[in-house]
């Protein structure tokens, strides 16, 4: 059937270095897409559960008491920017930019990812201070089942970034690593998509209907 040409994925152009690497990389990247879609269903279900549990506040604190939109706005900007920088990091690798640029974009992405997590955890602590803990109500259980799940993904992304950084340092820019960087970038963009869902449904939806 249809065969995707060389530039099938953002950042992929391994053809000149090693025939077959492109094909292998294409297969892995497609597999990663399938994995992301499976993960998407996880999130989709948590969204559905959240929607069904918005009213299950059982007399505990609700969205209006708990959500801090300023912090959410900051987190959104940070995550969005990191999505840009991870793309730039990938381009820097792909076009053999000087090492300093590669390190720069990787570093910025990592710092942004970590600061997102710090802000998110601060939010959770603040919520807990107001009695907003998952043990309090079905609504809060649903909230804590979903938002930290995304946070966990971001943390995994950070870990992945660090490991990849070390590997690039030790092994140089091989086809294998390049294709991993592509996948990391995909993952990171995917998390940004989920985050859009979270602000729209969890935060704004919660405030409107909760």
């Amino acid at each position: 059937m249809k065969r995707a040409p060389t530039h099938s994925y953002p950042g992929l152009n391994l053809g000149r270095r090693h025939p077959g690497a492109d094909k292998a990389s294409e297969v892995v990247t497609f597999g990663f897409w399938v994995f992301l879609m499976s993960d998407l269903v996880y999130f989709g279900l948590m969204f559905a559960i959240y929607i069904t549990m918005i009213d299950a506040q059982a007399g505990g604190p609700g969205p209006h008491e708990l959500f801090d939109l300023k912090s959410i706005f900051a987190q959104t900007l940070i995550l969005l920017t990191s999505s840009l920088t991870v793309g730039l990091a990938m381009l820097a690798l792909k076009y053999n930019l000087p090492r300093s640029r590669i390190v720069l974009w990787f570093g910025v992405t990592l710092v942004l990812g970590l600061s997102f997590l710090v802000l998110e955890i601060r939010d959770f602590v603040a919520m807990a201070d107001k009695g907003g803990i998952p043990q309090r109500s079905g609504f809060l259980s649903a909230f804590y089942g979903l938002v930290p799940l995304h946070g966990l993904h971001v943390a995994a992304g950070c870990l992945w970034l660090i490991v990849l950084g070390i590997q690039l340092r030790l092994m140089g820019l091989t086809d294998l690593l390049m294709s991993r960087v592509v996948r990391l970038a995909l993952f990171w963009h995917f998390l940004d998509l989920i985050w859009i869902g979270i602000i729209t449904i969890v935060y704004f939806g919660g405030l409107t209907y909760g």
Binding site: K2, A4, P5, H7, S8, Y9, P10, S83, G87, L186, H189, F190, D192, L193, I196
Partner: peptide, 14 residues
């Protein structure tokens, strides 16, 4: 984001 970050569009390759 799907179009500009994830490069999803109707081109054959994607």
């Amino acid at each position: 984001q799907l179009v500009y970050f994830l490069h999803i569009d109707r081109r054959r390759s994607s």
